[in-house]
Design a binder for these strands. Structure first.
Length: 291
DNA sequence: TTGTGTTTTATTGCCTCC
DNA sequence: GGAGGCAATAAAACACAA
């Protein structure tokens, strides 16, 4: 048995020991709660046992029902072989208690596992048993309860051991995943394919790539603005031209207007473009488009 | 029916407490 | 020293499979 299990068993034994001093107050009530019927059942036998208690088998003294023919003989032999007092004890003739007796002993034990001297005498009298038998029964019952608790404790320890084992496995798996994650991160930042080891396209966009993206966005805007202007001019001129294409989801249009000068009308746009030079390009482009 | 394992009752020896 | 507790054990009673 492992040390952990031994420690648990010691703790349980201590708990049981502590419990024995806590329940004396309720004993009397429990014993008195036993119905008189049980005593009445053994009443006739009890009367005779008052007269012949030292000459009758224990079975008849305590009103134990014999369960087999063999038991009858054994009960008779109990005193035939032995004598009185302590000599009877040495001749061990075990008699099982009746169901009623056990039932009431259990009910008392359920509330308190230890009986004081007076309570034991009273209970024995109530159940038609010998005081010694009540004492033995409680002693054996405590032992049985302890065994049950210990077995339960062992089962719990086994379960805890299993859970701890599972936790260790999960921890190991977690460590492996962390290691894999670390390798993958390093591969990504090194621009190396983690499967073949060859360089890969960097995930971070280069300046050139960003410049191209910006140009793309700018050209899209110009196209949309020019289309809007074209549609507006065509509508004003009422030339019956259909719009080039319907504009949907167009970003807010920049301010624009027409500037006349030098015998030339130019479209001026307040552009979102990065530089005035580019704005000029777009203006010219739009102008050419409108014309 | 019988052999075997389990449960229940009882005993013994040792220890602690009053 | 006696009473009572516990652990270990004996032995009877019981359960059950073969």
């Amino acid at each position: 048995m492992s040390d952990a299990k031994k420690n648990t068993l010691n703790i349980m034994a201590c708990l049981a020991e502590c419990h024995r001093y806590r329940c004396a107050s309720m004993q009397k009530d429990v014993i008195h709660s036993i119905p008189d019927q049980l005593t009445m059942d053994n009443g006739s036998q009890q009367e005779s046992s008052d007269l012949h208690v030292h000459h009758l088998p224990i079975a008849s003294v305590i009103g134990v029902e014999d369960r087999t023919e063999e038991a009858d003989d054994a009960a008779v032999d109990y005193h035939d072989d032995g004598g009185e007092g302590q000599d009877e004890v040495s001749n061990k003739r075990m008699k099982r208690h009746t169901d009623d007796q056990i039932k009431h002993l259990e009910s008392v034990f359920e509330r308190c596992t230890y009986l004081g001297g007076n309570q034991r005498v009273e209970l024995a009298k109530k159940l038609g048993m010998e005081e010694r038998q009540v004492k033995f029964w409680f002693q054996n019952r405590r032992t049985r309860k302890k065994v049950i608790i210990i077995q339960g404790g062992i089962a719990i320890l086994d379960m805890m051991h299993d859970e701890r084992q599972e936790s260790m496995w999960l921890q190991e798996e977690n460590d492996v995943l962390h290691a894999e994650n670390k390798v993958l991160k390093e591969a990504i930042w090194a621009n190396i394919c983690f499967t073949c080891g060859s360089p890969v396209v960097p995930a971070i966009p280069t300046v050139h790539h960003r410049y191209l993206s910006f140009q793309n966005m700018r050209l899209d805007d110009e196209l949309q603005h020019a289309t809007a202007v074209f549609n507006m001019v065509a509508q004003d001129a009422d030339v019956g031209l259909p719009p080039v294409f319907p504009l949907t989801d167009v970003s807010p249009l920049p301010q624009f207007g027409f500037v006349t000068g030098n015998n030339q009308t130019s479209l001026v746009i307040d552009p979102p473009s990065p530089s005035q030079s580019e704005n000029q390009v777009s203006t010219e482009s739009a102008n050419s488009t409108s014309t």
